[in-house]
Design a protein around this nucleic acid. Structure first.
Lengths: 239, 239
DNA sequence: CGGAGAGTTGAGAAACCTCAAAGCAGGTGG
DNA sequence: CCACCTGCTTTGAGGTTTCTCAACTCTCCG
């Protein structure tokens, strides 16, 4: 399973979640080994487990090998905001670098496996490996771009558009991982979707029903089948 | 604030905008000089000027020495979303690292002066200077945290709360720069405020008037005086 | 088989938007 | 130097979207 001299040395190794899935990095064999050593701390998680809670000291980033997670921030008055849903190959914890303390909770929505990446060692290695440094910068920047797109969604889209954009985003990400881009299994509740999209759960439910009525989707609880991808796209892009 | 033996050697130097204002970094004299060299590309900008437009190649970050800027992303269907207002000591352009192409427009809302920081040279230097590397990571992470807070605002606050949070944020930032935290001059239009906050300009105007009626603010066009900071805070934090 | 959590649907209320009109400030050209 | 024009702001009335509250159903799991 690990990093020595076998045929396809890195397809199953622990470093892949960072290197292969997040962004491709060209590394020498030596650097590859060092990165693998860095990402060898893998650990199973169960549904409901917290990777970290806000307020905890920041030490590591978490690369998702398998599973499905949500991150959420908490407002002073108790309101929560889901800031993202993360799946395999994605990184959680970048927001904690700024203050050395986690600013959000990260919760597993299904069983999975994660790599814990000690951040000080990642920083040290990225000083020596320019490709890794650039990679890390792109990861963080990509997170900023993602957040800007959500701001756009929250700031100027209606319920229908938000939900269409959400489903298309999930579809695209599932598709990129070799799963069906049309038959989606939602790991989260209507409540969590609504919170993420700035809507109430009833509005999410009603809008899904409405999409189904119009032949865009087939919805049965958390199973969503996209029946008319083009028309769904026309909602968000605007024809 | 400085590391060597002269009175106030770098108050007027070009490097200050990155080093002093964004986050403090402890550097040796040699590294300080190299960073200053990196940030010596300063340039005046006039109101209405674009630092960059979306689609342009990414080469540099921009550190604001003086002035006031907005960044905005454009949706396919033409809708815009203001993603932030930036003032002295803040960095613009981090979102472009992910794709090597600018994803947003950056526009000056008043005359000012900016430092252009070639990113590849910044990366190279940060490989050699761990303090600078950490600094850069914190900057990017802080941007992510900021965006998460705006997601919270857009996703779960009402118009009054959004506007109160917006004004308090401006107040805090102006205060931190030695300006009055109560007598604010808004550089942006109601339209731009509304776009940023996910509201229509009329709603912004009405809410400001309502705050004034209740004795929270004194509003005269773009001049806003905060009359009752505590009560304004109670809007956003929740008493 | 029963209970708890999740999801759906309806009716009425609230928040915000749209459209419209009018007032103001600042810049430009006569 | 003044008048005009343009863009920004304010305010009102009515419409739309989304929320709130409530009841009910469904599914999963013990």
């Amino acid at each position: 399973m690990q990093s020595t001299s076998h045929s396809c040395p890195r397809t199953a190794c622990s470093g892949c979640s960072l290197r292969k899935l997040c962004l491709p990095v060209d590394l020498s064999d030596e650097d590859t080994g060092r990165l693998d050593a860095l990402t060898s701390l893998k650990r199973p998680v169960q549904r409901g487990d917290y990777l970290f809670r806000r307020g905890e000291d920041f030490r590591s980033l978490f690369a998702i090998r398998t599973g499905f997670f949500k991150t959420q921030v908490l407002h002073k008055d108790g309101r929560e905001q889901v800031t993202g849903f993360q799946m395999s190959g994605e990184i959680i914890g970048l927001d904690a670098i700024s203050s050395d303390v986690h600013a959000c909770d990260a919760v597993a929505l299904e069983d999975g496996e994660i790599c814990e990446i000690p951040f000080d060692r990642l920083e040290a290695l990225s000083r020596e490996v320019p490709g890794l440094q650039r990679h890390l910068h792109k990861l963080m920047s990509r997170e900023i771009v993602r957040d800007h797109n959500i701001m756009m969604l929250l700031g100027s889209m209606r319920a229908e558009e938000r939900l269409a954009a959400f489903l298309l985003n999930l579809s695209q990400r599932f598709g990129a991982r070799g799963h069906s881009p049309t038959a989606l299994y939602l790991r989260m509740t209507r409540q969590e979707i609504g919170n993420y999209l700035g809507l109430k759960l009833e509005t999410v439910s009603r809008t899904l029903s409405q999409f189904q009525e119009h032949g865009l989707l087939n919805v049965r609880l958390r199973e969503v089948e996209i029946m008319d991808m083009l028309r769904l796209r026309s909602f968000v892009g605007g024809t």
